[in-house]
């Protein structure tokens, strides 16, 4: 048995300072992106099973602000 390497999980970063509440991520990929009552995504940085990559990318590319990115490494300290 080998353990799954870290790169297997998908890391997603939502820039809350850029999000304008258009909620396009949620409209295209509700299984990945949650928005608050005003349509804003407050998920910050989180990990997802790589099976959700297609949906995650679909939601990210629909963002009118390009607020969603996929950092390769883990979150930076601080």
């Amino acid at each position: 048995m080998t353990t799954r390497p870290d790169t297997d999980t998908l890391r997603i970063k939502v820039d809350g300072g850029v999000c304008m509440g258009h909620a396009m991520c949620n409209a295209l990929a509700p299984e990945v992106y949650e928005v608050d009552d005003a349509g804003f995504n407050r998920m910050g940085e989180f990990e997802l099973d790589p099976a959700g990559r297609g949906a995650a990318e679909r939601g990210a590319s629909a963002c009118p602000e390009r607020a969603i990115s996929f950092p390769r490494s883990g979150p930076t300290a601080g």
């Binding site: 509440g21 909620a23 949620n26 409209a27 509700p30 928005v35 009552d37 005003a38 349509g39």
Partner: peptide
């Protein structure tokens, strides 16, 4: 926009 955004979510 924030004030009215909740009326226009998916």
């Amino acid at each position: 926009r924030r004030i009215v955004a909740s009326a226009f979510t998916p």
